[in-house]
Each structure stands twice: as structure tokens, then as C-alpha cells.
Design a protein around this nucleic acid. Structure first.
Length: 417
RNA sequence: GGAGGGAUGCCUGAGCGGUUAAAAGGGACGGACUGUAAAUCCGUUGGCAUUGCCUACGUUGGUUCAAAUCCAACUCCCUCCA
């Protein structure tokens, strides 16, 4: 590999986004020479995206900053088929309405990170359902099916692993990679898009696309993948007690998002700063060289930066301030996640376990009881010793609220109304 | 088409008539220790309920006082033979 020339590729490698590339020299040259249009495909299986997709989102953002054009491809059509990569079972079929709803939610996430519009480097969002739904089966087979070798397809990990592992793979899913390859060609034709980005699990699908483009139209298409991200202790990114770390504020508060990053393992701080913030590299090296407890400062910066990107500067500051009050000053901050409870209910008294369940600090009453029994539940920072404790207006603090905590990190306010 | 094997809780995986809400490990949650870290150790881990009830071992029936465990049919999967 020769020295990289383009700013984008240099950044890409330096920051740790790089995993595999179909032709790094040519791609680098293209980036150095002219604006490149690139896309990443996203499933529409949920109303929001979570941190598992954040790396891809950041790449599109940086791509745009470097003067290139990002395309967000929503897999409205392919979602109906289901990607077999890395999955043991076929995906449940979801309805068109759900797909539309999910797309709307996902678009909101992207609007925070990249600029959409009609300008040359403005991002666009397209839905592959637009061209996939209208395909004629016979003509598609004749024009594109001929270019796919079954022998070859069977060697791709997404298919191979599934077959080796006794799980059945339906013909429907088998077609996923063909459709994704077709997407790439279609995007080249429509938008002169010549690069597909994606996670390393998409490598097979991406390569299929570049090859299909070359065979059918002689296109020069490129693929670039990012590494699969796990934490240093080997866990997949983005799962916690509360569930997935969603990027939409209506699914996960900015405070909780901030907390997620604040709780990063020591060993991951540098890596995450590079991937998920836009701090300059020398600043990052300084931060990651901090030792012991000082590394906590770096974690706060990480949390601030990440929250600022996803939810805005104001929300990030508020989350940081809330955390500071809660964890460092032992105060009860107004801005903790809160739930309004009718005054009348509190007057009558609510069993503590029911309340924990109601506000989401426990998934069920039983779980709440166990939490109390295990000594992990707190009311206004006092451990709840009595399993049958009834919470009432008597428990209001000086500010007229009640603070409930599950463990040392999860806090919630009850506001009587 | 023929012959065997399998389907268990979030996951892996024991159990093969009652003492089994179901071993063990993982994961997750809580506690201790710390730095809102990791590692380690301890506890919890179906739901509802002021100790009793309900739902659970692929689906549906059956045999039994009693079944995840036995029988039958069905569904799906695996292996070998043709």
C-alpha cells in the first residue's frame, strides 16, 4: 500500500475506521481528485438506530465534511427480505406501514449528524423499495441473475456459515445479497454513486455489488468496510440494562445517552474518542494517556462530545451538569429522568415496588421486590429496608420531589402533579 | 423414498415419571472493593401475590393419582443411505 493522499482516507485509517477495502489505491486517488458519492444501507427494522450503527453514521458525517456526497440508503425493499448475515434465523416479516414508520424515525437521527438538501455535497436519503418493488422477475433474472454464480455465493460467509450451522436459509433470504448488489448498481446509475461503505459483516454483499457493476456496465465501484466493534471485554456495543442505546431522544434520554459513554471501560476510551468524536488526534492522544482515575476526565469529554453530536450542545451540557450534581456533589438534580405521578395517588400511597416498576427502574414488580430485598433500592438516597414500604407525600423532599434509585447509577425523580 | 437423531428458561446446555420454576456455565441485574473503570468475590435471575396461585420444557391430543420426562399424530431441524 502506497502512501495515502486523500484527506478522507488518511482520516479514515488514522481514526480506526478502516477494515477492508476493495481497491484502496484507486479509491484514494478518486477521493483526492474529485468529490465522491458514497452510500451506506440501513435496515428499517426499528424506529431508531442505536450505537451499533453510530460508526456508520459518523463515517457519512465525516465524508460530507471532507467535501463528498453521502447517500443514506434505506432498505425499505430489502427489509422485506431480511439480511441473513450473522443471523441464525430468518427475520419476521414486517408490514409496509411499520417500515415507513421506522424510516421516519431513522431520518430524524440522521438529520442531527448530516445535512440533507439539493447541493452538491448535501446528503440524500433514498429508499430501495422505489426500484426493487417494480422489478420484473423474468427480466431481472435475465439481466442480472446471469451474473451471479451460485457456487460463488455459497462461499460467502453470510451463506456459508448459515449452511454449515444446520440452520435453514430460505430462497427469499438467499436473494438478499443479489438485491443489495443491484442496489449499488442502481445508485451508480441514478446518482453516480461509486462507493459503498458498511460494517465488516457487509463485505460479501458489498463485493457482490462492485462485481455486478463491473460485469453489467463496466462501472468502477469501490467498497470500504469498518471493523466490527466490541468493547475490550468482548461484549457487543450498545446493550445495557435498559436495553439498546438508541440515538433518538424519545427512545433514550440525552442523560442516559451521556451516562452510557461516561461508563466506557478504560481500555476503550481512546478508541471511542477516535471513532465517535471529532476531537483532533493530538488532543485524543493526550486524553488517552491519562492514568487511573484521571481517565475519568477523558470519559466525561467523551460523553460530552458524543451527546453533543446526537442531541445538541445544550442537552450535552445539561446531562453533564446533572451527572456532576448527582455523582460528584451528592445532590438531587432537577434534570434527572423523571415521571409525573398524580398527587392523589401519592396521597393514597403507592407500594415502593409498584412505583419502581411504574417508572421503569424495574421491569416487573417481582424484579422491583428483588431489588429492594437485595438492598439495591434507594428512596431519597436512603436504602429501602422494608420490602413493603409505601411511598406517599410524606417522602417528598424539600423541593417537593421523590428520588428513587436502582443501584448506584440509575436514578429517577417522581414529580407529584 | 428408506434408516436414525433432535426441539428445554435471555443464550449454551443437563434432566428422561413425582423431592423440577427445572443442574451447570454464560449473559444480565444488585451488593462488596474501586475511579460512575476492569478484574475479583457474594447474592439474585418466569409472572402475580403480605408464602399461595398462575404460566412454562416445539404443537395437539392420550396414558397415569402424578409427565419436561411414557404413547400417538403433526411441524421444523440434523445425520446417514437411495
Amino acid at each position: 500500500m502506497t502512501e495515502l493522499r486523500s484527506d478522507f482516507m488518511k482520516m479514515f485509517v488514522e481514526r480506526g475506521y478502516m477494515h477492508q477495502c476493495t481497491n484502496i489505491d484507486e479509491l484514494d486517488a478518486a477521493f483526492a481528485k474529485e468529490p465522491v458519492t458514497a452510500y451506506i444501507g440501513f435496515d428499517c427494522t426499528a424506529r431508531s438506530l442505536h450505537v451499533g450503527s453510530l460508526m456508520q453514521i459518523m463515517i457519512l458525517r465525516r465524508l460530507q465534511q471532507a467535501g463528498h456526497k453521502p447517500i443514506v440508503l434505506m432498505g425499505g425493499g430489502t427489509t422485506k427480505v431480511g439480511d441473513p448475515s450473522g443471523k441464525d434465523e430468518s427475520r419476521p416479516v414486517i408490514t409496509d406501514e411499520m417500515i415507513q414508520e421506522n424510516m421516519d424515525g431513522i431520518k430524524k437521527v440522521f438529520e442531527k449528524f448530516i445535512t440533507f438538501g439539493d447541493g452538491p455535497t448535501d446528503a440524500i436519503m433514498v429508499n430501495n423499495d422505489d426500484w426493487l418493488s417494480g422489478l420484473g422477475y423474468i427480466s431481472f433474472l435475465r439481466d442480472y441473475g446471469r451474473h451471479f454464480s451460485i457456487n460463488r455465493m455459497l462461499t460467502f460467509d453470510s451463506v456459508k456459515l448459515r449452511l454449515e450451522r444446520e440452520q435453514s436459509l430460505s430462497f427469499l433470504e438467499f436473494n438478499y445479497m443479489i438485491l443489495q448488489a443491484y442496489d449499488f448498481v442502481e445508485l451508480k446509475k441514478r446518482y453516480n454513486c461509486s462507493l459503498q461503505l458498511g460494517g465488516s459483516d457487509q463485505w460479501g454483499n458489498i463485493v457482490n455489488g462492485t462485481e455486478l457493476g463491473r460485469r453489467t456496465n463496466g462501472f468502477d465501484l469501490y467498497g470500504l468496510t469498518t471493523p466490527l466493534l466490541t468493547t475490550s471485554s468482548g461484549a457487543k456495543m450498545g446493550k445495557t440494562a435498559a436495553g439498546a442505546i438508541w440515538l433518538n431522544e424519545d427512545m433514550l434520554s440525552a442523560y442516559d445517552y451521556w451516562q452510557f459513554w461516561r461508563n466506557t471501560e478504560d481500555a476503550d476510551v481512546g478508541k471511542f474518542l477516535k471513532l465517535f468524536t471529532e476531537l483532533p488526534m493530538d488532543e485524543i492522544s493526550r486524553l488517552e494517556s491519562l492514568e487511573g482515575a484521571e481517565l475519568n476526565e477523558a470519559k466525561k469529554i467523551l460523553a460530552n462530545e458524543c451527546t453533543r453530536l446526537a442531541h445538541g450542545a445544550e442537552a450535552a451540557e445539561a446531562a453533564a451538569e446533572t451527572a456532576r450534581k448527582t455523582f460528584e456533589m451528592g445532590q438531587t438534580a432537577d434534570s434527572l429522568p423523571s415521571t409525573e405521578v398524580p398527587k392523589a395517588d401519592l396521597e393514597a400511597g403507592i407500594p415502593a415496588f409498584a412505583l419502581f416498576n411504574q417508572i421503569g427502574l424495574a421491569q416487573s414488580s417481582s424484579e422491583a421486590r428483588k431489588l429492594i430485598k437485595g438492598g439495591g433500592a434507594r428512596l431519597n438516597d436512603e436504602k429501602i429496608a422494608d420490602e413493603k414500604l409505601v411511598v406517599s407525600l410524606d417522602h417528598l423532599d424539600a423541593e417537593g420531589r421523590i428520588k428513587l434509585s436502582a443501584g448506584k447509577k440509575r436514578h429517577h425523580l417522581i414529580i407529584p402533579v
